[in-house]
């Protein structure tokens, strides 16, 4: 018998604090598997966001920093500019990246910073208890859009992958999801591609991953994965939006 699935070395194995069925855990594992497979754990430096993944420095088994809300791309910039031979990634949620950190992500991309951004989009503020996010869908009920998000009041959800793909500095931009095994495989491929393109020095890389928040969506973990198919993918289409290697 040979082991075909086990904890990657790039995870510490600390028990996650995430809710049952939260797909942050799957995404953490994919990032760690890619770091293992590329053999870059000892030169990788990660930056955690403010949001549910704020404690990710306890989970990734490499040098880690914790950022102020939205500022991870600026911190990543400071590190990568000083240590261009290292591999630098940020791990950010939708409130962190697409709301309070919009300026930092947009300019990191415009500058073509050679970093990899793992953007976890679950259409809601998880850690603070289910408030509306910039990626909350029209009609979606949250604690601060209790009657459903209305375009005339709260405006429209932002499509970050499409926005950042427009920047000349972006070298690889993809949107994937982890709601079924085939999509998990595609997500891992995209993450690997992003890290490889960072190492080749081609520019800014980001994988936006549609992720489930069963707790704040008020769904079971299995229903939440279906909700991604039914509601998120129609508005946030999957695919590669930029690939300077292709």
């Amino acid at each position: 018998m040979k082991t075909v699935a086990a904890r990657p070395e790039s995870l510490t194995g600390a028990q996650y604090h995430y809710c049952p069925g939260c797909t942050h855990g799957i995404i953490h594992r994919l990032v760690a598997e890619v770091i293992d497979e590329l053999g870059i754990r000892e030169k990788t430096i990660g930056i955690c966001p403010v949001g549910c993944a704020v404690l990710a420095y306890d989970y990734f088994n490499c040098d880690m920093l914790e950022a102020a809300h939205g500022r991870a791309p600026a911190i990543a910039t400071g590190i990568k500019r000083m240590l261009p031979e290292n591999v630098v990634f940020t791990y950010q949620g939708d409130g962190d990246l697409a709301s309070i950190g919009m300026a930092e992500i947009l300019h990191a991309s415009a500058r073509g910073e050679k970093i990899t951004v793992i953007f976890v989009n679950n259409a809601v503020y998880g850690m603070t208890g289910g408030q509306m996010a910039p990626t909350t869908l029209l009609g979606q009920v949250t604690t601060t859009s209790p009657y459903g998000r209305k375009a005339e009041v709260e405006g429209y959800p932002v499509r970050m992958a499409e926005i950042l793909a427009e920047n000349e500095g972006s070298a690889y931009i993809a949107r994937t999801t982890v709601n079924k095994p085939a999509n998990v495989r595609r997500t891992k491929k995209a993450i690997k591609k992003a890290f490889e393109i960072q190492q080749k020095g081609l520019g800014f890389t980001m994988v936006e991953i549609l992720s489930a928040c069963p707790t704040n969506w008020g769904l079971s973990p299995v229903q939440a994965l279906e909700w991604i198919d039914e509601n998120m993918i129609p508005y946030y289409p999957l695919g590669e939006f930029k690939n300077k290697e292709a």
């Binding site: 075909v4 699935a5 194995g13 996650y16 995430y18 855990g25 799957i26 594992r29």
Partner: peptide, 20 residues
């Protein structure tokens, strides 16, 4: 049959899989 899809979908690192 050791396909490891369970481990792939597990968010919490509960499952290790071996295959012949």
């Amino acid at each position: 049959n050791g396909c490891a899809v369970c481990a792939m979908m597990c968010p919490d690192l509960v499952i290790e899989v071996e295959r012949e």
